[in-house]
Amino acid sequence: MRDLLLPKSGQGSAQLPARVFYPATRPGPSAPLRSRKTPYPTIVFMAGTGARGRDYVEIGYELASHGFIAVMSDAPVNAFALQVKNARSLHAALIALNRNKKSFLYQQMRTERLALLGHSCGGSHVAHVLAKNPGYVCGVAYAPYLGLGLGYTKPYSPLVKVPILVIGGKGDKISTAKDHVRGFFEELSAVRGHKVLQILDSRCTHYNIAAYVSSQRKIDHRVFKAVHRSVRAWLRTWIENDFAKLNAVAGDSARREALIDQILIQTERPSAWIKEPIRLGSNAAFQLIAEQGVGIWWLSQGVARRPIPTPWGSIELNPKSAIHLFSVPTSASGFTSATVYLPRMASPKKIRVALQVIALGRNGYRLSNLIKVRP
């Protein structure tokens, strides 16, 4: 963990204060970064009312212990407009820091795919920032607070385009699940990809959802851990394009979590994956997030030389060998799983088998991401 002052980029504080948590070679402040060839997924976090980023120590350490760099924005307490400006400015500042050979984070952050997180008012500010998005690829709003009149985010939420995960709890007496959290989710009308709402049961309060330790309230770490299994999976989905991680957010893994009471999904473009292990010539669990309708799975040997544009998105399969594999009704829950035989396709060149789905999104049928399977 280290404290940084970064030069602003266009707006915000004269310098951008942040406490940075990262995978380190040893415990303790200012420990050396555990460097690696592949940059770490990186997030920016905004604090809630009465707090600074440094007060969310457990989120910082939780993410760092799982291979993330967490930049906790330390905007002055309750300086809401400044917090929003700083979060916008931090996007460019982190790109510059990542290019600075004198920085201990030189080339260690995946700055082309940064994510934005926030708790309480900071969760609401996720919408404020993403409405004029400087380049964040996804967002997470913990217990977003919409103000006394519930109108704090209404001018901004409909402008958010990137995927966003909204999490709340039935034990929250401040950002109530029914009015604040569900209301925020419903306002997000233009999201591309997915928006997902998770409501945890009464054990999830405004404070233990994010382990806000400065609240001096008892933290239920079972809640905190359950929340962050979903948060980490969501971040890896969009930062690393690993769509199988959605299983822990909205698939059967998430639905088996005892603390999660409700999951709602709204989809603009379907996402598909095959649950591990994947073996040609055996049954496999094909999983899909899509609106209620029909999911049509296609399979090919190899992929197209370049994506083929269509009114439904881009075909990435090899059109010369593509075949219809199966079709399945998609669930009203937004998540569908089907166990189907995955045929063995002989290929002397060991060409990968690829799959793609066409299924219903918010604005009609769309093509999903591409799935590659080793021969």
Rank of each mutant, 00 (worst) to 15 (best):
T111D: 07
A141D: 00
A92M: 14
C138Y: 07
A131V: 02
L150M: 06
N86D: 10
V126A: 14
R88V: 03
H91I: 11
G139L: 09
S89E: 06
G122H: 10
A93P: 15
L148K: 15
H125F: 07
G149R: 15
Y152W: 15
L117Q: 06
A131Y: 11
Q107D: 02
G147R: 01
A93M: 13
R88I: 09
L94C: 02
A96N: 09
S120R: 10
N98A: 00
A127Y: 10
R113G: 10
G147C: 10
K154I: 14
K102W: 03
G123D: 01
K132E: 15
Y145A: 04
A96Q: 13
H125A: 01
N100S: 04
L150R: 10
L117K: 07
V129N: 09
H128C: 09
S124M: 14
R113Q: 05
A131G: 02
Y106H: 10
P155D: 01
L90E: 08
I95H: 14
G151I: 11
P144V: 10
V140E: 03
N86E: 01
A131R: 04
N133T: 03
R110F: 15
A127H: 05
L117P: 01
G118K: 06
G139N: 01
A115Q: 00
N133I: 05
A127N: 12
L146K: 13
N98H: 10
L90F: 13
G118T: 05
Q108K: 12
G135L: 02
Y152A: 10
H91V: 07
G139A: 10
K102Q: 08
G122Q: 01
